[in-house]
Computed example of a mutant assay.
Amino acid sequence: MEGLDTITYWYRSGRFIPGVLPLPAEHLASSKFIDALSDLILNSRLPVGLVSLGIHKLNDADRMDSCMEGLLRMRRLGVLIHLLQFSGANLQIQWIEKMEPEGIHIEMGQFRADGLPHRMTSLDDKFHTQIYASNITLVKDLENVMAIGAHHSYGGLMMPPVSRHQILHISDSRIAKAIFSLHPHKTQNGDK
């Protein structure tokens, strides 16, 4: 509910910001849960493409098979699918090839000790999906992000997290005024 409320908040503010709702894979096996989630999404009256499910805890073949029906039902509603906690395991790769999710999220800290496995290089060539790299805190993480071919990256090295309140008031800050004075652009509301 909180995730849908946040997406609705931004949508009603005139900003079409998609949101990813994290969800353990085992919940998608329950038809009652899928019915309830479908009702929530339909009642939110959000446009197609603003709601994404971030599937995590997808580690074994049983979970992958049991959640397929629920994922297909969500897809029919226009919900986008993202795979969270991608580790490069063969089962996850097979699931990606079968399901073709819209996004793959990779936590880059898992490759600091042992380095980047060869099968993880150039993922953008292997999959037709957006690749998100998270937890970028070291320069080595940035090097791994470039080797993977991630489309988006975020973490403490890029920018510390900000709250909704901070985002709303950033236009009042001197930093924001300096940024916007250097690069004026129009928003969807026509404001500069």
Rank of each mutant, 00 (worst) to 15 (best):
93 I>E: 12
20 V>S: 06
106 I>Y: 02
165 H>S: 13
3 G>H: 12
109 G>W: 03
31 S>H: 11
1 M>P: 04
103 G>V: 01
147 A>R: 09
60 D>R: 13
102 E>L: 02
75 R>V: 07
45 R>K: 15
85 Q>K: 09
79 V>N: 02
100 E>Q: 14
110 Q>F: 05
151 H>Q: 04
2 E>H: 04
65 D>I: 15
74 M>P: 00
39 D>H: 13
130 Q>N: 06
26 E>L: 06
77 L>M: 10
38 S>P: 02
72 L>P: 00
32 K>R: 15
26 E>M: 08
68 M>E: 15
180 F>V: 08
73 R>Q: 12
59 N>P: 00
175 I>K: 06
152 H>P: 00
71 L>F: 03
30 S>G: 05
190 G>L: 05
36 A>N: 12
191 D>T: 10
96 I>C: 09
131 I>Y: 03
103 G>K: 02
13 S>Y: 04
177 K>V: 00
18 P>V: 07
110 Q>S: 11
158 M>G: 00
100 E>Y: 05
145 V>D: 00
130 Q>E: 10
142 L>A: 05
135 N>I: 03
73 R>H: 08
76 R>D: 07
23 L>S: 04
105 H>A: 07
88 G>V: 03
76 R>C: 03
64 M>P: 02
144 N>F: 13
88 G>P: 03
28 L>T: 02
95 W>N: 04
38 S>N: 06
126 K>A: 07
107 E>V: 06
112 R>W: 03
6 T>I: 12
61 A>W: 08
89 A>L: 09
75 R>W: 02
110 Q>E: 13
133 A>S: 06
84 L>R: 04
136 I>G: 00
116 L>I: 08
2 E>T: 08
98 K>Y: 06
32 K>E: 15
20 V>K: 05
14 G>H: 13
139 V>T: 07
163 S>E: 10
172 D>W: 01
128 H>R: 08
122 S>H: 14
61 A>S: 15
113 A>E: 14
26 E>Q: 11
32 K>D: 15
23 L>I: 15
186 K>S: 10
76 R>T: 08
152 H>I: 15
133 A>N: 01
69 E>W: 10
26 E>N: 12
138 L>K: 09
64 M>W: 02
1 M>Q: 11
176 A>T: 07
90 N>Q: 13
111 F>K: 09
60 D>V: 13
94 Q>M: 11
102 E>H: 11
64 M>G: 10
125 D>G: 00
61 A>T: 14
83 L>V: 07
84 L>A: 01
170 I>D: 08
63 R>E: 13
90 N>S: 12
76 R>H: 07
184 P>G: 04
78 G>N: 06
77 L>H: 05
65 D>A: 15
89 A>E: 14
173 S>M: 05
140 K>G: 01
168 L>Q: 12
106 I>P: 02
97 E>F: 04
187 T>E: 12
44 S>H: 06
112 R>L: 12
104 I>C: 05
154 Y>Q: 15
140 K>H: 06
21 L>S: 03
